[in-house]
C-alpha cells in the first residue's frame, strides 16, 4: 500500500536525527474539573509504530483527539507534519479510526467506504478495492453494515480510516473484537505502513500488543509514566513483563513484578 514520502525520511537511519512528524508541547486538556490530559510532551518520528498504553479513562482517546485535530487543547501546542493543529486542510493527511463504530448501519460496506473516501478526497476506486481486500471484506461489498459481525465492523472501520492512504495514522483500540488471526494480519499491515514511512499511534489497553510497537507511551491519569521501547520500559521498571511494569509505574503497591 503506497504512502507518500514523508519529511521524516526512512526510519532507522539514526545518523541524522529525523524531524519529528508529530510534536506536542505542554499539552493540557480539561473538562470542567477533570484533567483528561495533564501536561504531555511528545515527539514522534516517521516510519514508526507508537503504542499508546494505559488503563480505561487514562486519557488515551482525548490525547488522540487532540493530536487528530478534533479537540482544541486547553493549553500547549501541537504540530503535525510541521503544521500547527487544529488545521482543517491537514486532516486530509491524517487517518483516524475512532473507538466507536462510526459507520452508517443501513448502508453497505462499499457505500460506507466510498462515502468516507469522498470525504477524505480519495477518488481512486482501486484504492477502495485494495483496502477492502486488506481487511478481507472484498466479498462482502454489498452487505449492509447491520448484517456484519462486530469484528467485520472493526475491519470496515479501519478500512475507512486508511482509504485515503494517510501518512499520519491514529488508531484508537483498533483490534478490539478482532480474532487473533486477523489481529496478526492487522499488525502485519501496520508494520507495512510504517515501513513505507507512515507514522502510527495505536492505542490499546492490551499489553501483549505492545511488543509489536517500536515505541511505547505509557499514560495514566493524563500524564506520561514512561516512554521508550518495550525492553527499555521493562528494564527501567525492573519487571519481567510490561503489565507488571505498568502496575509498578502506576505506583500500585504490592503489584510490582511479582507474578
Amino acid at each position: 500500500m503506497g504512502v507518500t514520502n514523508l519529511p521524516g525520511g526512512p526510519p532507522g537511519l539514526d545518523s541524522e536525527p529525523a524531524r519529528p512528524v508529530i510534536e506536542a508541547d505542554g499539552l493540557h486538556k480539561t473538562f470542567g474539573t477533570i484533567r483528561a490530559v495533564d501536561g504531555i510532551d511528545l515527539s514522534l518520528t516517521g516510519g514508526r509504530i507508537y503504542g499508546l498504553l494505559g488503563p480505561n479513562g487514562s486519557g488515551k482517546t482525548t490525547l488522540i483527539r487532540l493530536l487528530a485535530g478534533l479537540a482544541r487543547p486547553s493549553s500547549g501546542s501541537i504540530s503535525v507534519l510541521g503544521t500547527a493543529m487544529p488545521s482543517r486542510p491537514l486532516l486530509a493527511k491524517i487517518g483516524y479510526m475512532t473507538q466507536g463504530e462510526g459507520l452508517y448501519a443501513e448502508l453497505s460496506v462499499w457505500e460506507n467506504l466510498s462515502f468516507f473516501a469522498a470525504m477524505s478526497g480519495q477518488r481512486d476506486p482501486d484504492a477502495l478495492r485494495e483496502i477492502l481486500d486488506i481487511v478481507e471484506l472484498g466479498d462482502r461489498r454489498t452487505a449492509p453494515v447491520v448484517e456484519l459481525s462486530g469484528g467485520m465492523r472493526r475491519r470496515l472501520s479501519l478500512a475507512c480510516a486508511l482509504v485515503h492512504r494517510p501518512p499520519v495514522i491514529f488508531l484508537d483500540e483498533p483490534t478490539v473484537g478482532v480474532d487473533p488471526v486477523l489481529r496478526y494480519q492487522f499488525w502485519d499491515h501496520f508494520r507495512g505502513l510504517a515501513a513505507a514511512g507512515a507514522t502510527l499511534l495505536v492505542s490499546s489497553h492490551v499489553m501483549d500488543e505492545a511488543d509489536r510497537c517500536d515505541q511505547l507511551i505509557l499514560i495514566r491519569a493524563g500524564r506520561v509514566l514512561d516512554m521508550g521501547t518495550s525492553d527499555e520500559v521493562r528494564r527501567r521498571a525492573g519487571t519481567p513483563d510490561l503489565e507488571s511494569a505498568f502496575l509498578k509505574l502506576s505506583g500500585i503497591p504490592g503489584m510490582d513484578g511479582s507474578r
Binding site: L70, P89, G102, M119, S120
Partner: peptide, 14 residues
C-alpha cells in the same frame, strides 16, 4: 451519537 459525525469531522470536510 453514532460516532459518524466524529469520523466525518476527522476528514477535511467543511
Amino acid at each position: 451519537i453514532g460516532g459518524t459525525l466524529e469520523r466525518l469531522l476527522a476528514t477535511p470536510v467543511r
